[in-house]
Design a binder for these strands. Structure first.
Lengths: 194, 194
DNA sequence: ACCTGAACACCGTTCAAGT
DNA sequence: ACCTGAACACCGTTCAAGT
């Protein structure tokens, strides 16, 4: 809306600026505001200008999802107690997801993220598991269970849950306690000694 | 496309026929084909005609999601062994979800279903838990953990998973085994004796 | 290389008719 | 009550320019 440039005039756009605007738009006006056209309006360019910096909307959202994971506090995989470290990492992930409720359905739909931040967290988890002799297929299984559980639970927490059967929506603290409890059961099952 | 009716002429539409067409469209051409306009085209009416039978697209999809749950084989809550019954119910749900891969992201985004079929399954789960003295808040917690876990795992299985860290996509059988294993851990943690 | 103009092929939904 | 016509306010994306 209101672009004052003639064709050929540069707007000073860059990939980083586009991603930054996407994060701001998300934080200020929610996921539905993050359209290519809405983003373009905020950057004061025409919608198609964005395609010089991102391949498409999917790629843009993928980058935003990975960026957010940088907020997760990962323990030092060399020194942390494995069970406590995994617990802390998943708890921090849970909190970060709750801080970005609009994104949770997207993490679900795409089953996580695939960028460098996600890779980094995965590496920390694998390193912690390796220190209690859990490697290979067994480690990948553990990763999968923990990630699915965490994202799934976050999805449950971000809004009034479905409540199959008769029930009232539990408060956030109760859900957080639920999350911690189930997480301990899973870690015990996986075989990480407490 | 090609409606041959003058205003006032009826098309013989009914809510049930609209839902049926939505299910067919989903099965034949996938989720993205299930738009109000695409649905109208298949029923040979104009898009707005649908609004005489469903409130909006969200309500329509909600009904489709609940309908699918009718395929889940629920055990008899009076006679089934509680742990085995819960295990069987969740496994059947997992299979039904895998049979409708396009819907899984929607179950995730809406955190389940809320219709009569979902209510029915929830009632069976609560009855099984009650038989091992798990009731009230503790039962709701168990329900939540089991449902989140099952939908989350199904989401993971429906497509090449994200694979945080270095890994190859596991085959369906391996994932199914993963699902069963994690489910047993959760049931043990919930306190349902095996 | 980076942007605009214009267009294509879609969406969900609403409002005012007609019978 | 159930449908059409027409429109509103959007989408993501592509193609052909301009500098």
């Amino acid at each position: 809306v209101g672009q004052q440039r003639a064709p050929g005039q540069r707007a000073g756009l860059t990939r980083a600026r586009v991603l930054e605007a996407a994060r701001e738009l998300l934080a200020e006006r929610g996921l539905e505001a993050v359209s290519m056209r809405g983003l373009a309006a905020r950057l004061e360019v025409t919608p198609n200008a964005l395609y010089s910096h991102v391949a498409n909307k999917t790629a843009l959202i993928d980058d935003v999802l990975d960026d957010v994971l940088a907020e997760v506090r990962a323990p030092d995989p060399e020194t942390a107690e494995p069970a406590a470290g995994l617990h802390a990492l998943m708890s921090s992930t849970y909190e970060v997801l709750l801080a970005h409720p609009d994104l949770v359905p997207l993490y679900l739909a795409r089953r996580g993220a695939r960028g460098p931040e996600a890779q980094q967290l995965g590496a920390v988890m694998l390193a912690l598991l390796a220190r209690v002799e859990i490697t290979g297929a067994r480690a990948r299984e553990a990763l999968r269970v923990l990630i699915v559980y965490t994202i799934g639970f976050a999805a449950f927490a971000v809004r009034p849950p479905l409540e199959i059967g008769p029930a009232v929506g539990p408060p956030g603290e109760e859900l957080a306690a639920n999350f911690e409890r189930g997480l301990r059961w899973l870690l015990a099952g996986i075989g990480v000694p407490d």
